[in-house]
């Protein structure tokens, strides 16, 4: 059964809007995220496997922390610290990957910068920035990621939802999706429902519990599935009717739109050529960008010469 994605118009103060349509919902649905089993998307797994031993990184919007144990073939060779706005998700993320190992997680906002500048060697931000409801805020989030990593060698990988969805995805996308603005597609603001079936007074066997979506791309998006609540979650009475949580997403129109939030190097770094030699120039290169499994991604690298 396809789940309709509904176009929306962002109203209110964006912070208040995101509190209601993103943060409150993740707090509520956090127990239904499974973190013990997943298959990381190839580009993300590759990125984390390519990092030198001893590097430290930030996962901005870590959610259930599924990327914190990576790379699986060299566990413990790098440390990724998870940041998220949802305290309940962090409660899951701290034990991501199972076993004895515990993860480092920090409760914070992706628009903040609670770090020494440039303290990290790398950063990832997977399926997070699309929850910010204005272009300006999405851009600030990307700037914060760039400010978090080393201006000399920092690397970052950012994933956001694409309007172009995987053919195997069960999401149905509204048809009038590609708004053209000066020839540049500007994406689409939508609600994506997370259906949480309520426990009736006699719980049914959880035939549909916690399946990942059928395209096998991992467990990041489970919103199409009706998920059985855990026993302690039976707070909303005995209704048979499933609860639907409409989460806000900005579906990016193209990889280029993600490029636009990165901006030009001049906006990001003040070049400081010393007066005698043209040295100490810093910049940011886009190493790769593209589409993978219903998402756009971009990988960047900072440099100085």
């Amino acid at each position: 059964m396809p789940t309709a994605v509904t176009p929306v118009i962002v109203s209110d103060n964006p912070q208040i809007y995101e509190d209601a349509h993103v943060h409150a919902i993740y707090e509520e649905i956090a127990p239904h995220f499974s973190s013990t089993r997943y298959k990381p998307w190839p580009v993300i797994a590759q990125f984390l496997s390519s990092l030198p031993t001893g590097w430290i990184g930030l996962d901005s919007g870590t959610g259930n922390g599924k990327y914190l144990p990576l790379p699986l073939e060299r566990p413990g060779s790098v440390w990724t610290i998870g940041l998220d706005r949802s305290r309940n998700l962090l409660g899951i993320a701290r034990n991501a990957g199972g076993g004895e190992a515990s993860r480092e997680v920090v409760w914070g906002d992706v628009l903040g910068l609670p770090w020494r500048r440039g303290a990290f060697d790398y950063a990832i931000s997977i399926a997070t920035i699309h929850h910010l409801s204005t272009h300006a805020r999405r851009k600030v989030a990307v700037q914060r990621i760039i400010e978090s990593i080393s201006p000399v060698h920092g690397r970052a990988l950012i994933y956001v939802w694409a309007i172009e969805q995987d053919e195997l995805s069960k999401r149905s996308i509204p048809s009038e999706q590609s708004d053209e603005l000066n020839g540049q597609s500007k994406g689409q603001d939508v609600f994506v429902p997370w259906v949480l079936s309520q426990m009736s007074s006699k719980p049914k066997p959880s035939a549909k519990s916690s399946r990942t979506r059928s395209n096998g791309s991992g467990s990041t998006y489970q919103e199409e599935e009706a998920v059985s609540p855990s026993p302690e979650d039976n707070t909303t009475g005995t209704s048979e009717k499933p609860a639907v949580f409409n989460r806000y997403y900005h579906m990016f129109a193209q990889a280029n739109e993600l490029g636009l939030v990165i901006g030009s190097p001049h906006e990001l770094r003040v070049e400081s050529p010393d007066s005698k030699h043209i040295r100490n120039m810093t910049g940011i290169d886009i190493v790769q960008d593209g589409w993978e499994r219903s998402n756009y991604y971009v990988e960047i690298r900072c440099w100085r010469k």
Binding site: T53, G54, W55, I56, G76, S77, V78, R116
Partner: peptide, 30 residues
Amino acid sequence: FPLQFKDIQIELREAEFNPDFLRGFIPRIE
């Protein structure tokens, strides 16, 4: 920076020793 600890409770828990990570990480430490 650095933030100062106040009124803290600590717990000691063993973690897996990874000397290669530590060698690479040392230059990053304040």
